[in-house]
C-alpha cells in the first residue's frame, strides 16, 4: 500500500522540477543544435535559451513564463495499491497541481473555454488531465508530469494508405513550416507523430511520442526508427531555425508511435514539445522509497504489445 501523503508530496516536487529544470536529454540535444547552427539570429536565440536554463535553475524560477497546461501520466505495476484508492489519487494530483501553481509560482493558464472563469490554480473541469497505464508485475507507481504548451504546433489529418510515406512527409512539413513561421511552436522542439489508431488515439499517441520519449530514443521497430531519423533530418533541412529565423534547427528529435487503425485509413497527428520540454518523473514504492528521473520510460514492450495475451518475457520481468 503506497501512502497518499507521500504521493502528494512527491507530486508537488515533480511540478516544481518540471517547471524549473530542463531535462538533460533535451539540453544535450539543444547544445548539439547550437553547435551546428550558423544563422546569426537563430544562434543568438539558442545561446539565450541555454543561458535561460541556467538562470532558471540558479534562481529556482520557472524557465518559461508560460508554464503550459500541466497534466499527469500515472503508471502502476500490476500489484500496486494506493491508500484511499483511485479517487484519493486523483484528488492528491489535483491538490499538488493547485499547490505548485501557487508555490513555484506557475502561470494559472487554465480557464473555462466559454466563460473564461479562472480558479488561478490550473485546476478545473477536466484539468489537469490524468492518464493511466499499467505494467505486468511490480508494486510501484510512476508519477509523470508534463507541462506542454497549449496553443501552437499540433495538427491532425486523415490520410489514407494511398498517401503513403510521401503523404506523411507532406503533412509533417506542412505542420512544421506553418507553425514554425515566426516561431509560434517555440522550436527547435521534440516532434511527436501519431500514426493510426482512431482520431482521438492518434492524437494521444502523437502527444505521448513528443512528451514521454527522450531525445535519442528510437522506436523498437527498426523501420519506424529509420523513419524517425529521416523525418528529423527533413525537418532540419527546411532552412528555418528558432523563432522562424533563417537557420537549421527545427527538430531536436522526431518520435513516432503507431496504433492499429481502420483498414482504409492512415490517421496522422503532429505535436511539437517546445524549447521548455517540461517533464519530470518519480517512482514511488510501497516501502516509501522515491526515485526521481526525467525519462518517463512509458513505451515499454507491454505498451506496444500486438497480441491478445501477454506473456512476460524472461529478460523483461524485472525491468517492467
Amino acid at each position: 500500500m503506497i501512502p497518499m501523503d507521500l504521493i502528494e508530496k512527491t507530486a508537488v516536487t515533480l511540478m516544481n522540477k518540471a517547471a524549473i529544470e530542463i531535462p538533460d536529454d533535451y539540453l544535450t540535444g539543444l547544445k548539439a543544435a547550437a553547435e551546428v547552427e550558423d544563422g546569426d539570429l537563430s544562434s543568438f536565440v539558442l545561446q539565450a535559451m541555454l543561458e535561460n536554463y541556467e538562470a532558471a535553475k540558479e534562481d529556482r524560477r520557472a524557465m518559461c513564463g508560460d508554464t503550459g497546461t500541466p497534466r499527469w501520466y500515472v503508471k502502476m505495476g500490476n500489484q500496486t495499491q494506493v491508500e484511499g484508492g483511485p479517487v484519493a489519487l486523483e484528488a492528491a494530483l489535483r491538490r499538488a497541481t493547485a499547490k505548485a501553481t501557487n508555490g513555484v509560482p506557475l502561470r494559472p493558464n487554465r480557464v473555462h473555454p466559454l466563460w473564461r472563469t479562472d480558479h488561478d490554480n490550473n485546476v478545473g473541469i477536466g484539468a489537469p488531465e490524468i492518464e493511466y497505464g499499467y505494467e505486468p508485475g511490480g508494486e510501484w507507481i510512476d508519477l509523470i508530469t508534463v507541462h506542454k504548451g497549449g496553443l501552437f504546433g499540433t495538427d491532425y489529418r486523415m490520410l489514407f494508405p494511398s498517401d503513403g510515406i510521401e503523404g506523411i512527409k507532406r503533412f509533417y512539413l506542412d505542420s512544421l513550416v506553418a507553425f514554425g513561421k515566426r516561431g509560434l511552436s517555440c522550436q527547435p522542439a521534440i516532434i511527436g507523430i501519431g500514426l493510426g489508431g482512431c482520431k482521438d488515439t492518434c492524437m494521444v499517441l502523437g502527444k505521448r511520442a513528443a512528451c514521454l520519449r527522450t531525445v535519442g530514443d528510437r522506436n523498437s521497430d527498426p523501420k519506424i526508427a529509420e523513419l524517425e531519423m529521416e523525418l528529423k533530418e527533413l525537418g532540419n533541412s527546411i532552412g528555418m531555425g528558432a523563432m522562424g529565423f533563417v537557420g537549421k534547427s527545427m527538430v531536436i528529435d522526431a518520435h513516432i508511435e503507431v496504433g492499429y487503425c481502420h483498414t482504409g485509413g492512415m490517421q496522422m497527428s503532429v505535436h511539437a514539445f517546445c524549447l521548455s520540454s517540461r517533464r519530470a518523473v518519480a517512482r514511488v514504492f510501497a516501502d516509501g522509497r522515491v526515485e526521481y528521473r526525467t525519462d518517463p520510460q512509458w513505451f515499454t514492450d507491454y505498451q506496444r504489445r500486438e497480441t491478445v495475451e501477454w506473456e512476460v518475457p524472461q529478460n523483461h520481468e524485472k525491468s517492467a
Binding site: 543568438f44 536565440v45 539565450a48 535559451m49 543561458e51 535561460n52 536554463y53 538562470a55 532558471a56 534562481d59 524560477r61 520557472a62 524557465m63 518559461c64 513564463g65 508560460d66 502561470r107 494559472p108 493558464n109 480557464v111 473564461r116 472563469t117 479562472d118 488561478d120 516561431g183 517555440c186 528558432a242 523563432m243 517546445c274 524549447l275 521548455s276
Partner: peptide, 30 residues
C-alpha cells in the same frame, strides 16, 4: 521576446512588481 522561452532571464529583469489591476475581474493571467 527571444526564444520564446527566456522566461527566467526576463524574470531576473523584474526589479519590482509595482501593482496589479483588474485581477478580480480578469484573473491573474489576464
Amino acid at each position: 521576446t527571444v526564444g520564446y522561452g527566456t522566461g527566467a532571464l526576463l524574470g531576473r529583469g523584474v526589479d519590482n512588481v509595482e501593482a496589479i489591476h483588474w485581477n478580480e475581474e480578469l484573473g491573474l493571467a489576464q
